[in-house]
Write a protein that binds this DNA or RNA. Structure first.
Length: 261
DNA sequence: CTGGGGACGGGGCCC
DNA sequence: CGGGCCCCGTCCCCA
């Protein structure tokens, strides 16, 4: 599911949202998120505290020798498939399996003590080194990972974050503290509100260097700039036609070009 | 139908 | 740690 459109569906009935309904923020938020939280919901400190904080439990994590974030679910970032070289793409569903795999790998090296000597097992968190993998694994299990993999869970949905700051930022998307004084619409962040206010004022601070056309939104200018480019950003794998927007490429693909792979 | 614009949302990064 | 900004992305609408 697209990440940001639970919110908007409520306005589908008409072109322009009826903000008069926004006496509370209720309309903005998908109701199922708040079954137990009658609106308006003001973010309260406790949602960030112990209840939401659940250490360890989350990461069934990946490659022991990568960054602590290596196994972080894609919720944190753009969905990019793991590099093929990431052999840790084994099934991590069982907490023991990664270790077992590594140990298995080591077993094959046991015949060559020099290899073991050369391959120090270093904790990527505290830089301690171990001569055996199991030593490192034990260390990580008991010390570093347990501390580093703290997760901060959103009280309103099931998202989890590695930092409190990230969680707080996310929670704003539920509480929508920035309210437009003109129409009452609420936003998660001040700059989103700023952009919205431009729709009232007509201010368009971003202008195209090629045609001087002005835009209220930088992203829209960026998209517009694509229209001046011969080779656009999104290319069809089949016919090499390029498109200024991903959505246009998708439409193109769905309309038939790439159907018969 | 297609291409483009408008409005908006979310995570990450930087200061 | 928090705010501001950037970048990427989506949906909707219209010419």
């Amino acid at each position: 599911m697209p990440r940001s459109f639970l919110v908007k569906k409520h306005f589908n009935a008409s072109k322009k949202p009826n903000y008069s309904e926004l006496d509370t923020h209720t309309v903005i938020i998908s109701p199922y998120l708040y079954e137990s939280y009658p609106m308006p919901v003001i973010p309260k400190p406790e949602i960030l505290s112990s209840g939401a904080y659940s250490p360890i439990t989350v990461w069934t994590t990946t490659a022991p020798f990568h960054s602590p974030l290596a196994g972080f679910p894609s919720a944190l970032g753009r969905m990019s498939p793991p590099p093929p070289s990431d052999t840790s793409s084994k099934d991590h569903s069982g907490s023991e399996s990664p270790i077992s795999d590594e140990e298995e790998r080591l077993q094959s090296k046991l015949s060559d003590p020099h290899a073991i000597e050369a391959e120090k097992f270093q904790c990527n968190l505290c830089n301690k080194t171990y001569s055996t993998f199991s030593g490192l694994a034990k260390h990580k299990q008991l010390h570093c990972d347990a501390q580093s993999r703290k997760s901060f869970s959103c009280k309103y949905c099931d998202k989890e974050y590695v930092s409190l700051g990230a969680l707080k930022m996310h929670i704003r998307t539920h509480t929508l503290p920035c309210v437009c004084k003109i129409c009452g619409k609420a936003f998660s962040r001040p700059w989103l509100l700023q952009g919205h206010i431009r729709t009232h004022t007509g201010e368009k601070p971003f202008s195209c260097p090629h045609c001087n056309r002005a835009f209220a939104d930088r992203s829209n200018l960026r998209a517009h700039l694509q229209t001046h480019s011969d080779v656009k950003k999104y290319q069809c794998k089949n016919c090499s036609k390029t498109f200024s927007r991903m959505s246009l490429l998708h439409k193109h693909e769905e309309s038939g070009c790439c159907v018969a792979h």
